[in-house]
Amino acid sequence: MIKVSNISKRIGKVQALNQLSFSADDGMITGLLGPNGAGKTTCLRTIFGLLKPDEGYAEIDGIDVAKHPVAAKQQLGLFPDPFGLYERLTPREYIRYFAALNGMSKQAASTATAEVLSKLRMEDIADRRCKGFSQGQRMKTALAQAIVHQPTNIILDEPTRGLDVMSTRVLRDLLLQLKQQGHCVLFSSHVMQEVAALCDRVIVMANGKVAAIGSPQQLCEQTGQTSLEEAFIQLIGTDEGIAA
């Protein structure tokens, strides 16, 4: 469960977030939809405590991120943009490293790493150094890092960028699986299709504010449009910065 209350954040001269409030529940996939520059990444970084909000607060499972950062992050997995791989480590070492950083014992970290490697069908690349990996292989490694310690909340920043069909399917299946296991999944995107296909709830963001919240179905009904894309354009008032 992720809860954001009245967060405002100024970066330089830009008001990146403006009284933003929403929540993402367990057992649900929540999409953060907005055009480029809407403040999606800033919002996610604030939830991780990497940015400090000027006003408001973010809670993870009821723990205030700003006050207890380590305890709050314990319940978070991040799939970042960009990935931030260590090119000289193998995926197995990389994933095990982050598992251990989340407090797992050596034994538990190794077991969890082996499990997630097989879940994502990465055994063939598990012991090769990350240098020279394809975009799909990088995505899988970063994804494995985000879920290896079984956090209740998983946040993904633009997860489908640059992926081919096969990789996108792996990602989509995994997100649905996580939802069934009762995890809270929050991802940001500006790609309509995947939001429409995956999300139970969509938070439409524009100019650092929430423009609308609801299921894709509800958003269409609310605006009287037939497709999410049309609904979205009507909600944010422009079609700038959107990929179909």
């Binding site: 991780f48 990497l50 950062p69 992050k73 991040l78 970042p80 990935f83 931030g84 260590y86 989340n102």
Partner: peptide, 14 residues
């Protein structure tokens, strides 16, 4: 430069 600092700090380490 490799963008791993942000990821590292988003994990529960001080």
């Amino acid at each position: 430069e490799r963008n791993s600092l942000g990821l590292l700090l988003s994990h529960p380490v001080t």
